[in-house]
């Protein structure tokens, strides 16, 4: 499958292995979670990086202890309307602080590109006939986001127009109370 990173097609250095496939002696491999959990040491020790593919029903906490050894996590969209991997991505990036490559696989459409980046995906496996122009255009159609604390380059209101007031969220209600109109 063609791979998009940073708005362009790139060579994919990773080999995707199924549960019982033989592991090549070197090179980057992506293995299913089960395989990784059963052969963790072997996979971590070999030459070449290791990535883990999670089903969209898997709990990202299952790989939490190994995230320092894992260079890539592949999440999947069996149908583009099945949005579970958005939340898995968010948990990996924000609860678990995963800093490696986060790859979107399966039914990945241009019209979703913006959202995918916001939840932390940075690599996208797309269908063979995807045009890069449409991909880039779709992912940049909306440049603003109301939601704070997400990733990607959509700007939030406070980033667009930095505000002079101090930002102490815990004081929110108090400030609101004080300046509420009489």
């Amino acid at each position: 499958m063609p791979l998009i990173k940073d708005g362009q097609f790139v060579e994919d250095s990773w080999t995707v292995l199924q549960q019982d496939d033989e592991v090549p002696p070197k090179g980057d491999v992506i293995v299913p979670l089960e395989r990784y959990l059963s052969d963790t040491d072997e996979l971590n020790r070999r030459v070449g990086r290791v990535g883990v593919a999670l089903e969209n029903t898997a709990d990202p906490d299952d790989i939490a202890p190994y995230l320092n050894d894992i260079d890539l996590v592949a999440l999947t969209f069996p149908a583009f309307t099945d949005g579970r991997a958005y939340s898995q991505a968010r948990q990996l990036r924000h609860h678990l602080g995963f800093g490696g490559e986060l790859r979107a696989t399966g039914n990945v459409l241009a019209d979703q590109a913006g959202f995918l980046k916001q939840v932390g995906f940075d690599a996208f496996e797309v269908t063979p006939n995807q045009s890069i122009d449409i991909w880039v255009k779709a992912s940049e159609a909306v440049t603003l986001a109301y939601q704070r604390g997400y990733d990607g380059n959509r700007k939030t209101r406070d980033k667009l127009r930095p505000s002079p007031l101090p930002q102490h969220p815990s004081d929110c209600a108090a400030v609101a109370e004080q300046s509420a109109p009489a």
């Binding site: 406070d158 102490h168 929110c172 609101a176």
Partner: peptide, 10 residues
């Protein structure tokens, strides 16, 4: 990180 800054609600 998620909540709006106080002045936003104001």
């Amino acid at each position: 990180r998620v909540m709006p800054p106080a002045q936003e609600l104001v």
